[in-house]
Simulated scan of single mutants.
Amino acid sequence: MMKENLRKLIICFMLAVGFLLISSSDAAVSENIWEKITAINKKGPYLGIVVPNSFEMSPLLQSPSFVPLKALPYLDFAGKRFRFGRVENESVIVVMTGLGMWNAGITTQLLVSLFNIKGILHFGIAGNANSELQIGDVTIPMYWAHTGLWNWQRFGDGSDDELALESNGDYTREIGYLKFSDFNTNTSVDNLLNRVWFQPEEVFRIDGIPEIRQHAFWIPVNDRYFSLAKNLEGLELGACANNTTCLPRRPKVIRVERGISSNIFVDNAAYREFLNSKFNATAIDMESAAVGLVCLQQRIPFITMRALSDLAGGGDSSMSNEANTFAPLAANNAVDVLVAFISLLNTRQW
């Protein structure tokens, strides 16, 4: 424990020196901003709450559970607004990422680099790849993967042919592929798009050797967080979008095995079914894996809570693809689960 505390102090000192040197040369962080960051960090550590957009963030900010810090309710830096406050008597920093993997990764890295963060809670809405679940259900996956990193195979090559640069260790066939011709309506016709092979991310851990890469495809959430989340499974969630439009059953909190992310909004039933059968995926979104990858590299515990807003690509049920109607309900349910989870953390004195 002493070694870990010493390591953190050294890192904070190096960051402080670096930022002050930068600020003196009229660059990234001004002396005024750094003074505010230093003052905030003295009151830490904090839970970092990361959310994709204002539509999903607003129910939290409007909740009586969120109490802004009066002295300094927020700090704007690098195009991001970091909001300081308390949720269920736990000190938090709330930040909105914007759409997609790039924004989510950059924002999370800024959060953990600038502030004294002890854990990351990520929440929002998601598409659903599991037709056995319903709109409004809040999923808490054990693993996340980025499924938008591909090696696109040359037309004419088969599954046994080596991929370009595979021999260098840059790419792999271990995870598997999507073959476009499997989705042709005329199965006798080849598809010029051939195959894409799913690839792991390169990871450079904070306690590893710089520029020596490791690889990660399935990113685990924190074991303790995931275990604690089981206590949320009986939580009562909203079931009605308005006075006349309600879901067939009351939504539930459910821990699932896997969620996936990529810079793709999935509204296609064939691809949804592929993702579910290939990866056993439930929640489909555009940010969670990026948040998880940063936390993996920085050794920060994290967990994601995603409320299902639609069955990606639609289905037979009238309740299968009603994102426009039920997205606000899903967003509110995600916030309810987030607040309940923070209450559990606070009660357990983690």
Rank of each mutant, 00 (worst) to 15 (best):
residue 335 V to F: 06
residue 57 M to S: 12
residue 115 F to Y: 08
residue 201 E to Q: 13
residue 308 L to Y: 00
residue 347 T to V: 11
residue 2 M to E: 09
residue 334 A to V: 04
residue 207 D to L: 06
residue 85 G to C: 07
residue 302 F to G: 00
residue 311 L to F: 14
residue 245 T to P: 06
residue 284 I to N: 05
residue 312 A to C: 15
residue 69 L to V: 06
residue 1 M to Y: 09
residue 62 Q to M: 06
residue 199 Q to S: 06
residue 238 G to L: 11
residue 268 N to G: 13
residue 330 A to H: 05
residue 191 N to I: 05
residue 310 D to G: 06
residue 15 L to A: 11
residue 52 P to D: 06
residue 58 S to N: 12
residue 251 P to A: 09
residue 64 P to N: 13
residue 239 A to V: 08
residue 95 V to H: 03
residue 345 L to D: 00
residue 161 D to Y: 08
residue 63 S to M: 01
residue 142 M to G: 11
residue 241 A to L: 02
residue 327 A to K: 10
residue 126 A to V: 05
residue 319 M to C: 12
residue 257 E to S: 13
residue 68 P to L: 06
residue 5 N to K: 14
residue 306 R to Q: 05
residue 66 F to T: 04
residue 162 E to V: 12
residue 135 I to G: 04
residue 19 F to D: 05
residue 289 A to H: 06
residue 219 I to V: 08
residue 253 V to M: 09
residue 321 N to L: 12
residue 215 H to D: 01
residue 89 N to Q: 13
residue 197 W to N: 01
residue 216 A to D: 02
residue 207 D to T: 11
residue 340 A to T: 04
residue 48 G to I: 02
residue 223 D to H: 07
residue 190 D to F: 14
residue 60 L to H: 03
residue 47 L to Q: 00
residue 168 N to Q: 13
residue 255 R to C: 15
residue 49 I to V: 12
residue 205 R to G: 02
residue 282 T to M: 07
residue 280 N to K: 15
residue 60 L to P: 01
residue 258 R to Y: 08
residue 269 A to I: 12
residue 262 S to D: 14
residue 59 P to L: 02
residue 109 Q to V: 04
residue 166 E to Y: 09
residue 58 S to L: 09
residue 273 E to D: 15
residue 260 I to D: 07
residue 147 T to H: 15
residue 63 S to V: 09
residue 16 A to T: 08
residue 48 G to V: 03
residue 2 M to D: 01
residue 171 Y to M: 04
residue 204 F to S: 03
residue 67 V to N: 06
residue 91 S to Q: 04
residue 29 V to L: 14
residue 70 K to I: 14
residue 197 W to K: 02
residue 187 T to L: 09
residue 33 I to R: 02
residue 206 I to K: 13
residue 311 L to K: 01
residue 103 N to A: 15
residue 343 S to G: 15
residue 118 K to T: 01
residue 156 G to L: 07
residue 342 I to K: 01
residue 191 N to E: 02
residue 58 S to Y: 03
residue 9 L to E: 14
residue 38 T to F: 10
residue 337 V to S: 03
residue 278 K to N: 14
residue 56 E to A: 07
residue 243 N to E: 13
residue 97 T to C: 14
residue 71 A to Y: 00
residue 317 S to M: 11
residue 238 G to A: 12
residue 259 G to R: 05
residue 64 P to I: 09
residue 110 L to A: 07
residue 278 K to V: 08
residue 143 Y to A: 03
residue 131 S to Q: 14
residue 68 P to V: 06
residue 14 M to T: 10
residue 152 W to F: 11
residue 154 R to K: 15
residue 63 S to K: 00
residue 226 F to V: 02
residue 13 F to C: 14
residue 33 I to F: 12
residue 159 S to T: 15
residue 40 I to T: 05
residue 315 G to T: 10
residue 299 R to T: 00
residue 146 H to W: 10
